[in-house]
Design a protein around this nucleic acid. Sequence first.
DNA 1: ATGGGTCCT
DNA 2: AGGACCC
Length: 549
Amino acid sequence: MSDDETDWGASLSELSAVGHAPLIPPPPSGLPRVIIHIDLDCFYAQVEMVRQPALRSQPMGVRQKQMVITTNYTARARGIPKSGSVQALTQAYPELILVNGEDLYEYRRFSQRIFEVVSSMTFAHAVERLGMDENFIDVTPWVHAHLSAPAEIDPSPVQGHVFQAASWDKSDPVHRCLALGSVLAQRIRTRIREELGLTSAAGIAVNKTLAKLVGGCHKPDDQTLLLPDQTLALLQTLPSPRSIPGIGSATHASLLELGIDTLADLQAAQVSNLAEMFDRETAERLIQLSQGIDPSPVKTSGRPQSIGLEDRFKVITTRDESKTKLKWLWGRLAQLIYEDGRIPRVIRVTARDQIKERAQGRRWLKESRQTQIAGHILTGLKTNPDLPQREESQVVDICLSLLDKMVNHSAPYQLTLLGIGVSDFPPETANTIQNYFVAGAKETRNEKRQPKRSHAAMTPPNEEAMCQPTPDIDEAIRPCSKKVKPAPLAIPVCDVSDIPHDWDPEVWANLPMDIRTELLASQPIQSRTNVKPLNKKTKSIASYFQKKS
DNA sequence: ATGGGTCCT
DNA sequence: AGGACCC
């Protein structure tokens, strides 16, 4: 037990806090949620090393324009920083090898694969993506179901590190919940390494913020569990309120104006102290975050809400140059839309104008204009990554007219960025219950399309081509994916193989979370444990989703 | 920084 | 449409 008399215990405080968080089913029986955060180690650098294994032993970094955005651990072992300007780093470390990472295509593919591996192993649980290389998983239903397993088949070993392990109590049900989470986290990380050749770090805790924070304690390629009673101890290691995810630069600046400099200041603050700068809800949330209380649910990440591309460049001063750049951007974006398979209804153009920035005395002034786009123009992308000439020039003209709303071509301007994005995809009707029972209906959704063009062909005219040959991802990972089924664990984990044979995985993947959770809890967990169904009422629901025999 | 994304106002 | 946040 902690000597601290203050009740910072996140789990208990949260049980009441979640009451008004709409999407969280109240945790049963006073037990906490169990959240895993998985974070790939220097993701871009690892992907480049998988694509080009000779880089593994070299100090290497990934570059976008004039910035090195990440370096591998070989480089960091030599004292090379995680990031910096190309200029500074190549001068100080001539041995550093740089790979161009401006084309995100391969990263996107690896990111999707990671999400698939995680989702397949945490069947029926919510998985939320954060950027390309982080995922939150709410494994509460599985953990709670297994907590009641007989002790002899549930040794509850902790995997990885425990933050401040001294207060570990193996008989504490809360601790056992988290230990089960650590076993799952370990298995997920192992599988990501086996399937994709990538190492990762994980944090296990009672909410997203704490899982993410504690996951940073042992990197790379390791994991850390946070016990709720060590929440304050973890938070005390943070240098500033800015270190808390969700407190960004703007919020931090406001806090400083209020004289709140340290995390302790924020922890001790009252809502009334923050009232000048924040509304009540925000003030409450900030104070709670500072205390390690975070009721925000793990959301199920579906398909993207938007797809966009941006390119920065020295300067563009004419409509003609803009047209060329927009054409090029559209060509690449069309490929991505084609691979996605959905047809968007809104298109947006983004621009930065240096002259306007200076005129307004602002460091950053990104403008955008968007418009609906008639369905018939883009429908060609359903079957082909290239639009017919006519439609393609229509799209480019639409983009140019959007740009015209932002720049006055009869006055001087200096564009340093252009982007195109699409959004407002039609809802996917495949999710309606009726569609599950229509033969062949699912063949039209979630199609995985292969690129028709090499991405080398999509390198901008002025930029250096990507010179390295790029093995296909499946080729690249083959050495690591032996397809050997891992030895069964003492504690069974939730896996696709655990789906009852008469349940359709695809149906499951598309069920709303509350239904999935209910069904998971109701599942007899056949051949896994002797746990009895928790809720017999849902058995009739389950029967609706069984495959027809 | 860069090249993406998310959600909220 | 912009701004906050995240990576």
